[in-house]
Write a protein that binds this DNA or RNA. Sequence first.
DNA 1: CCAAAAGTGTTCGCCGTACACCCATGA
DNA 2: TCATGGGTGTACGGCGAACACTTTTGG
Lengths: 234, 234
Amino acid sequence: MVVSPDIYNLHQPMLVAVDCIIFGFDERGLKLLAVKRQMDPARGEWSLMGGFLGGNESLDEAAARILHQLTGLTGVYMDQLYAHSHPLRDPGARVVSVSYYALIKISGHNQEQAKAHGAEWFKISEIPPLIFDHNEMVEMALQLLRRQAKTKPVGFELLPEKFTLPQLQALYEAIYQKELDRRNFRKNIQSMGLLEKLAEKDKAGSRKGAWLYRFNIEKYEAFKNQGFFFNVSV
Amino acid sequence: MVVSPDIYNLHQPMLVAVDCIIFGFDERGLKLLAVKRQMDPARGEWSLMGGFLGGNESLDEAAARILHQLTGLTGVYMDQLYAHSHPLRDPGARVVSVSYYALIKISGHNQEQAKAHGAEWFKISEIPPLIFDHNEMVEMALQLLRRQAKTKPVGFELLPEKFTLPQLQALYEAIYQKELDRRNFRKNIQSMGLLEKLAEKDKAGSRKGAWLYRFNIEKYEAFKNQGFFFNVSV
DNA sequence: CCAAAAGTGTTCGCCGTACACCCATGA
DNA sequence: TCATGGGTGTACGGCGAACACTTTTGG
């Protein structure tokens, strides 16, 4: 494929992996999707979904491929997080792993496919010990999520298409582990003009029922490109 | 060194590189340190200082080693930026490069050593075309610098030990490419209690002379760990 | 009729922002 | 003495934060 000048040959090639920190959200809170590892070493332990970078793909492509393998989803919101490189981090070989974080709608993914990989959702507060440095990766991903929740409309990625304001507020409360004032929250969110009120109510959460909303996708895209400030104070 | 279960052998190892985006600051503005590349391909073109990740080091260690090779400095402020992975990004081989950004005091580095590597400082606004995807890396590093300047006392890393408030303000103006109000700037900075006024003036910039300050290192460390908000509005 | 969650406005204090004049000095 | 950059205080507006009562409806 390419010339390989001598200088390149003096150095040690190594495996490059991608690990995905997959977050979801439902009525019971913010959750992480982990899998039972199906290879040695550490077979049978809990792990992030991962894989190796192929010779003809970028890391973004690899991350999307790996997420798709597990969930059947495409076009998911993903961000590169960090390159983890301790020489002994993977006892099986010298592997540099680049972590990606993904936000998915729990209800939208292919559950059989996930189950076939031994995947399970864990509440953020109840994440089991994971292999290697995967718990660290999750911790970093949570920090990034908290940062991004202030400047990007992450709710768009984690909630179903139609959602209620109490749900949206619960999402922010789960991300920040902090109760928010209902009136201030509504004022802030609604002042952005991102939400469209629908003519339906969701009666699942209460007798009275809460109005359903959806995001206005054009405004969302405009915000995403122009930089952005999501007005939720924490 | 380690067992290599079969699964690992099915995947293609590749080179992992580190490239350093080195920023400095002097009276003429914010600057980038670039080198004339001394190997094929692209020998003789401008490039970031880089090198390959060794078998027994982490990326942080490699970045520190590479920075030290060029500048003689140790203990420098560095942050991992991004893993660049387009399959064809380096025409010499399949190389994933992890970029690091570094903030150094221009006056403190070993200038002969830098010259021996063909290094030169470029004003941020006059950066020449660099090899591969290095210009992109610089662009990302600038964005990170701008983000961090709001939440971390980056001035501490870029200014000499003793500096004046006009210098500090010029640094922020260079980072944000925006003029700041002198009175508001001073109020904000001084309200943080990070600065110690010295009994000397610097007469280099004006006839009247400006008071010299230094950072209070204990308060700086406390801030750095506890999270932080540098009150400069942009 | 009552429990449980949804919905709604106002007040206050602080912080960010705008703005203009005097000071010290070397040439 | 004057040109140049350094140093200082105040007033206003808007935003974040705190806070309590009414509405709906299924059981």
